[in-house]
Design a binder for these strands. Structure first.
Lengths: 342, 342
DNA sequence: ACCGTTTCCGAAACCGTTTCCGAAAACCGA
DNA sequence: TCGGTTTTCGGAAACGGTTTCGGAAACGGT
């Protein structure tokens, strides 16, 4: 239990602490023999460098702050796993905080992390735009930050995002090709940029195919299954069920699907459904849910790389990486398999 | 960007650094006036104590290591959220690592955390028993560790666990009461203690009601939906579908449900299903899945409290807390609503 | 006015590293 | 052999706090 320090090793070998330190950090001049001897006896003695002392003397925390909006969808879990692995392998630790889709919580999280002297931040913002100015201020002060998903392309900062417009356009157009005539969009939150972008893609497709006004509608829902359910209940009450829904995410789609099935609607014959940001549950429900898959793994890794680069090279360029996905068409949106899907 | 230190504050007020330090740590003698003055000007100057320096001088990292087996089921996400919140509020940071159900990875995780000088560990072990001796060794050396879920009651260490035997007994007996005559158990991993315990509960119920051998069977599956699906395929191939399944978790149950439905089985009329460790998806599938809910939130919080207590009070007693749950009966296992469920 | 407490504060050691500076040692070519 | 480089290493300051120790100041009672 007693911690053996660099001094103990130095004393044992009658060398100075600086020499021992050098043995552990290649970058300084040290004879190969002594280096090996030191490493060997250090190992025998059970010496491990104290990371805290290292942090203090190097004025670096070797900590990365990661702020995510929520944890319940597997999307962010996966991102966290990738980031953890990436940063650990580079000698950093990840401090994770989640904001529970709450702007105040998010601000607190970021401030906590900055006070804890993280060397950099990866932020997947929560719903709302209130904290934007603060983030940008920090970014402009030179604080290494990479934004991930949930941020619009125009933000003047490094970011890794998904091409929501394009893929929601595809998803919507797929429904149109399948000859659904009345297609509603369950859109998440109005003050959430991924919602806006998915709305834009939806509108683009609907306009391209000249859908009349009464056949399309955008309904704000939130991001949870329960909210999808509520909307369907409401629509049923008003006898306003269209023949297809394009949903902001899988959870809302699954909530909607459940309520529709419970009320006797056949899917996809009466009503079709398409989700977004594919979860593993998409393939577990009946019928299986069509959804747009995001390259979560690659997006997270890229964000890590950009951040690390910025930390080690403070005046590196601002980078914006836009990822593309994959539209997985399943039974929930295919009434007629003879039609080419896209 | 320039960091203002305790010395700057001291110089500005012509006091010593020790006085400033005292102002920030109540425990030492300091006049109320000077304390307030110091805090005020410190704030004006934008001073924040450097947590790294504090860690070094106090020989504490104020870090807690949390090791979980996986991240894809919402169960551990929820646990992580609770632990994060709890420890942050106590001035600690959480270092999270996940083992991907891999023993070697788990050992690496724990060692990494110990080398990083975490003040304590919360471990939800992965599948397998190989790392047990190492954990116990550390525990006996006095390292503060609390085990969470996935550990058997006999382990001589502090732990927070769920009464799997009892609740899987209930779940199984519920199926029996519903007059299902041939009930199979999809059991997870043989070298996973929660599996063993759930098997035990299942057996207890089956034996109590004197089920003949041919009407029960335990099938090892793993913990993923895909594995549930594979087992069903296999059983269909061998014309060996029983009229009920009690499953080790919701994911396996959902995989099984999907495959059964795809093959024309009606649920719960032809086959009933019960899951465990309820996920939010249980209510999204058709029919809704019966499952045992665990008090995840309370379990995590308790684990945090025990650990903190042990850190601050090294010779506190070993504690074992066994939690109970709640059996949520839904349509997937109720053929006849006139029968009292339990 | 004096002495014993109590309150408050400064000096300095310490936590375990890294790193700058300079010096000793080794090496090299003429 | 000698002067100049290059290696290799030790000493000590620095990182930014906490904490022990002891002494000055304030206080309170006689």
């Amino acid at each position: 239990m007693i911690h053996v320090t660099i001094k103990d090793v130095a004393k044992r070998l009658n060398v100075s602490v600086s020499t021992v330190s050098r043995a552990f950090n290649d970058k300084y001049d040290i004879k190969k023999d002594t280096k090996e001897l030191i490493l060997k006896t250090a190992k025998e003695m059970g010496y491990h460098p104290n990371p805290i002392a290292k942090k203090l003397s190097q004025n670096k925390s070797f900590n990365i702050g990661v702020v995510i909006p929520e944890f319940m969808n597997s999307y962010y879990s996966e991102i966290v796993i990738v980031l953890q692995e990436f940063f650990i392998s580079k000698g950093y630790q990840v401090l994770l905080m989640q904001s529970d889709e709450n702007e105040e919580q998010e601000l607190k999280n970021v401030k906590t992390l900055i006070n804890n002297m993280v060397d950099g931040l990866i932020i997947a913002p929560t719903v709302g735009y209130r904290n934007r100015p603060y983030f940008i201020e920090k970014y402009n002060e030179g604080y290494p930050i990479v934004f991930l998903n949930r941020i619009d392309e125009t933000l003047p900062a490094s970011k890794v995002i998904f091409n929501n417009v394009k893929w929601s356009f595809f998803a919507t157009e797929h429904l149109i090709r399948q000859k659904y005539k009345k297609i509603y969009h369950l859109s998440g939150y109005n003050n959430l940029c991924v919602s806006s972008e998915r709305i834009e893609g939806y509108k683009k497709a609907m306009n391209k195919h000249k859908f009349p006004k009464e056949n399309y509608k955008i309904i704000e829902t939130g991001l949870l299954a329960e909210e999808g359910m509520e909307v369907i209940e409401d629509l049923i009450f008003h006898h306003d069920i269209p023949d297809a829904f394009f949903c902001v995410n899988d959870m809302v789609a699954l909530g909607a699907m459940k309520k529709l099935k419970d009320n006797g609607f056949k899917i996809p014959d009466d009503v079709a459904l398409v989700g977004f940001t594919e979860t593993r549950i998409a393939k577990l429900v009946t019928p299986e849910l069509s959804s747009v898959r995001q390259p979560t793994h690659d997006m997270a890794k890229k964000a890590g790389e950009i951040l690390l680069n910025r930390i080690n090279n403070p005046d590196s360029e601002t980078e914006t990486i836009v990822f593309n996905g994959e539209f997985n068409i399943r039974k929930s949106s295919v009434r007629d398999f003879s039609i080419p899907p896209i």
